[in-house]
Nucleic acid binder design. Sequence first.
DNA 1: GATGTCGGTCGAATCGATTCGGCGAATCGA
DNA 2: TCGATTCGCCGAATCGATTCGACCGACATC
Lengths: 337, 337
Amino acid sequence: MNIGEIARLAGVSRSTVSYALTGRRAVSDKTRKRIERVIAESGYRPNASARALKEGRTRTLGLVIPPASRALTDMQLGFVASVVEAAARVDLDVLLSPSGGDHDRSFERLVTGQRVDGVIVMEIRLEDARVARLQQTRIPFVTIGRTAQPDSLSWVDVDYAHLIGRCVHHLADLGHRHIALINRSQELVASGYGPGHRALAGFTEAITERGISGMSLCCADDAPAGHAATRRLLAEHPDVTAIATINEAALRGVQRALDNAGLRIPRDFSVTGVVAQHWAEDFHPPLTAADVPAHDMGSRAVELLLERIAEPESAARHVLLSPPIALRSSTGPARSG
Amino acid sequence: MNIGEIARLAGVSRSTVSYALTGRRAVSDKTRKRIERVIAESGYRPNASARALKEGRTRTLGLVIPPASRALTDMQLGFVASVVEAAARVDLDVLLSPSGGDHDRSFERLVTGQRVDGVIVMEIRLEDARVARLQQTRIPFVTIGRTAQPDSLSWVDVDYAHLIGRCVHHLADLGHRHIALINRSQELVASGYGPGHRALAGFTEAITERGISGMSLCCADDAPAGHAATRRLLAEHPDVTAIATINEAALRGVQRALDNAGLRIPRDFSVTGVVAQHWAEDFHPPLTAADVPAHDMGSRAVELLLERIAEPESAARHVLLSPPIALRSSTGPARSG
DNA sequence: GATGTCGGTCGAATCGATTCGGCGAATCGA
DNA sequence: TCGATTCGCCGAATCGATTCGACCGACATC
C-alpha cells in the first residue's frame, strides 16, 4: 500500500495525496475528504524511508548509551526513559546505540549513515573519543556531562562540584569535623569520568574553606563494595562522623556497615550526597540528599538537541542543573567527643 | 557525499561502486582497490534511508517499552539492555517506543510506517491491545510474556507458575506450613499482568498439593509498600513463617519489616522468590531465589524475532525459561512451635 | 576463423515519497 | 465580454541507493 495506490483509489494524482496529507498546498474539501476516506479504509501510512530520503531528515534521534556489560545505574536508566518520553512528545523516535569503545559499528552507523537527525551522548569522559568523532562529522549532538573543554559544545550536566560542596557545608554546619567522600569506582574515575572528578574538587574546596578534615575514597558501584569501603573507613578513621557520596549503588552497603558497627543514623552518624531520588527515599532513614534530576536532564537534552538541529550554526548552549538538597532524616548534629 | 560522487571520483559507474561495496557481483581487484581508496578518503557511507527504501528492510528492530511514568524495574531494564546488545551483535539497530495505551502515535509509527523490520513487545497483558494491533498488520513480532491465547504467537517468558511452585516445595520441605506470596501491585495484577496471575496459580497449586496453608497479597512495587505489607502480614497472620515473592522492588521493605519485628533470616523466618539476580545478591543474607534471566531473555527474543523476519510463515516458537533456584542463605528450617 | 563463454562494467529502471512548474477552469474587476 | 488572478490539480523531476539486462573484450573451442 503506497501513495500511488491511494491516488488511484481516490482518483487523483500522487502529488494531490501528498498535499492533502501534509497540507503544504491547498486541496479542495471534497477531494481531501475522499482521500482521507480511502486512507482510513486502507490503513495507509507513508513509508518512513522514502519520506526520510526525500526530506533529508529521519525524524529520529540517536542515543548513545554505555554498553550493557557495565550495568546502567538507576540514574542513567531514568535518563534514557526521559529522553525517549521527551522525544515521543514531539513525535520523534529514538535509536539506541550501546557503545563505549572508539570503533563501534553501531556508533558509526549512527553518526555517518544519516540514520538520525541528531545524537545525545551519555556518560561523557573528560577526554572522549566519541565527542571527537562527532565533531568531525557535521551531525548535531548534545552531551550529558562535560568534556574537559566544554565551551564549544552543547551539554546538560549536574553541578556535582557545587552540590557536594553544599553537602559538606551542611554537615559542617551541624558540627561535623571529619567527613568522608565516597566516590564512584576507581576505574571510572581513572578513566576521566567527570562527576567523579568534579565531586572530588568540590569536596576538597569546601573542606578547605571550612578548615575541617576530609578524606575521599573510590568504591565500586554495588552494595558489597559500599559495605567493605565503609567498614574499612570506620576502622582506619574512627573520628569520621559523616559520609557524603555520589555512589548510589553503594548506599545499601554503607547502611549495613553502619548498622553492623552499631552506629545509628542520624544520631551517631550522618549520611548525605547526590543520588537519584528513588535511592534517597529507599534509604533508612530517608536520605538528606540532592536528588539528581534525571527526568529534567532528559527533556532538557532533547530540547537543546532540537535547537541545534533547527539552527546548526547557533552558539552552543549549556544547562548546569543544581537541584536543592532535600532535607530528610539522615543527617544530624555531630556526636560530641 | 553520495554514491554518484564516489563513482565520479573513482572513474566508474554507480552500479560498480555498489557491487564493490556489497560484493553481490564480481569486481576486478584493481577497480575495487581504487573505489575503496576513494571511500576511505572521503569517509563515505551509504545513506540508510535510500538503502532501506530500495531493499525494503530497515535493519532496525522496534522495542516497545512501558511508558516512563511507570518506572521500569531492574529486570525490565536489564532486558532492554540485553535486547540492544543482542541486536548490535548482528548489526541491527533498536528503535524504542514507550507505549502503553491503545492509541499511541509512537507505537503506530513503529508498526505501520515500515520503520522497523520487526517488533519486540515488553510487559504483555493477558489481553493486550498492542498484540491485537500487531496481528492486524503483517509485521513480524515477538512478545516478552504470554497473552491468554499464546499458541499462535512467538514469545519468550519466565515460567513463574512453575518457579513459585518450586519455591513453595522448597519451603515445605524445610517444614514450613504457613507461607505467604507477595505479588506485584494490585493494579498490575488487575490489569491482567501474566506473571502475577501465573505466580498465584503456581502458588495455589503447590500449596494444595502439599496440603499446607498459604495466603497471597498484592503489594506496590517499592520498598515502603513492601514494609507495610509485611508488617500487616505479620500482625494478621502470626503463624506465617516464610514468604515467597516475585516483587523485587518490595524486598528491601520486607527485610526492614522483618528486622523491626525482631525476626532473623533464616533462623526465624525464610524468604525466597523469583527476582533479578542483582536483588537476590543485595539481600541480606543473600536470597535463595530463582534468578530471572533477563539477559538470556533479551537475546532469545532477538533470536526468535530474526527467525520470524527471515521466515514469516513459519510456525510460532516459544521459549519458556525456568532457571534453577539458586540456594543462598535466606531460607532455613521452619521455627518449631 | 567463426562461435561460444565468461568476467567486468555500464545504463536505466526502481523503491515511495515530496515538490516545483505549469495548465485548465472558475472568479473577479472594469 | 475580456484579460488578470486565483484555485485546484497534474506531470515530471528528485532524493540515493540496488539490481537487472545488456554490452564488450578476452579467451577457449571446434
